[in-house]
């Protein structure tokens, strides 16, 4: 193997959490393969200040593509700029986040590098010099392990699947420059408008805790317990398709096959039966708690803790109990 490369995600001049996770994963792969290097490519404008942080997070090489036109560059530009550089470095394994931009870049980059993509990996291991990725398939109903048939692959890593290591302040990285060819940054997509979704709580994709409500809540105006518990736990609000289809909640909150896939540390399902299409979107959560009047509901089988009873009675009591313990106080 050669250097394990990753792609940094930067927002407002800061590294996004996924970058820490990718560097942690790359670092442990590199160390397990007997002293390989970890490289990170960062695109943006005036991002040189991030080098020490990237170094402390585990990068040996920080490759900067720095140009005004590269801040928030679209996927086709990212692939066009980094592919020739990675080829020059004889990169084999490239780790991206299974995030909005990571997914958009992965396919394009793999075409340019003439390799395959392993998407949505939840675990990476070194097996005799090859990177083996574990992914959950069929909505967590099964897992599979995949590896590159040839020399390398682009691998997207599910956010939050890797626990980021704390940085080591002593580590330093070597800085490289990614040549930016004339014309390679030309944009073919133009943003006309950006509407920040007015989300009252944490956004679903990044949430460590998700509290989701289903038809069992009983109506659009009866979602109070979901929102209150979410506020207490600092959680994002999720929903089943049944309630989205009924217009009780917006589609952006839908979890499952036709909604989002989430993998938080804690998933709380309130009045959700746990149909397979819902389980697909949350099964890999760390801990699952379900509250349901029906002890036989499918969600109760996948839950770590299955609380039998009425959400409208249990949740208020739980919130009182938690705030008595100082959880969510002042939130």
């Amino acid at each position: 193997m050669s250097t394990i490369w990753t792609l940094a995600e930067i927002e407002g001049g800061e590294l996004k959490g996924i970058t820490h996770e990718l560097l942690t994963a790359a670092r442990s792969l590199a160390d397990a393969s007997g002293g390989l290097k970890v490289g990170v490519v960062a695109l943006g404008h005036e991002i040189g200040g991030l080098v020490p942080l990237l170094g402390s997070l585990g990068a040996d090489l920080v490759a900067l593509a720095d140009a005004p036109s590269l801040a928030n560059a679209p996927a086709d530009v990212v692939a066009r700029v980094i592919a020739p550089f990675l080829q020059g470095q004889q990169a084999r394994t490239v780790l991206l986040g299974h995030t909005a931009i990571g997914k958009d870049v992965a396919g394009r980059l793999a075409v340019r590098l003439d390799c395959g993509v392993i998407a949505d990996a939840t675990e990476l291991k070194n097996d005799g010099g090859k990177v083996v990725a574990t992914r959950s398939i069929f909505g967590g109903g099964m897992w599979s392990r995949a590896t590159a048939a040839g020399e390398g692959a682009v691998i997207t890593v599910r956010p939050r699947a890797v626990t980021p290591a704390t940085g080591q302040s002593g580590r330093t990285a070597e800085t490289l420059t990614v040549p930016v060819a004339e014309g390679s940054t030309t944009r073919r997509v133009e943003t006309l408008e950006l509407k920040q979704e007015t989300s009252t709580t944490v956004s679903l994709g990044d949430a460590e805790v998700v509290v989701a409500g289903g038809r069992g809540m009983g109506g659009a105006d009866r979602f109070g317990p979901v929102e209150t518990l979410a506020r207490t736990l600092g959680a994002a609000v999720g929903a089943s398709r049944a309630v989205v289809d009924s217009g009780w909640r917006p589609h952006k909150e839908q979890i499952g096959q036709t909604g989002r896939t989430v993998s938080p540390k804690l998933y709380v399902a309130l009045g959700i039966s746990g149909a397979i299409q819902h389980l697909v979107g949350m099964r890999t959560s760390g801990t699952i708690i379900a509250i349901n009047t029906d002890a036989e509901a499918p969600i109760m089988k996948v839950a770590n803790v299955a609380a039998v009873g009425d959400v409208h009675e249990i949740v208020p009591a739980l919130v009182t109990e938690l705030s008595r313990q100082g959880v969510g106080a002042g939130a």
Binding site: C115, G116, V132, I137, W143, R145, A146, T147, A148, V302
Partner: peptide, 15 residues
């Protein structure tokens, strides 16, 4: 040609 090989698959560890 196949560029990704699936080497193993199975049921998830029982929760």
């Amino acid at each position: 040609a196949r560029q990704v090989l699936v080497t193993a698959a199975g049921e998830p560890p029982q929760r």
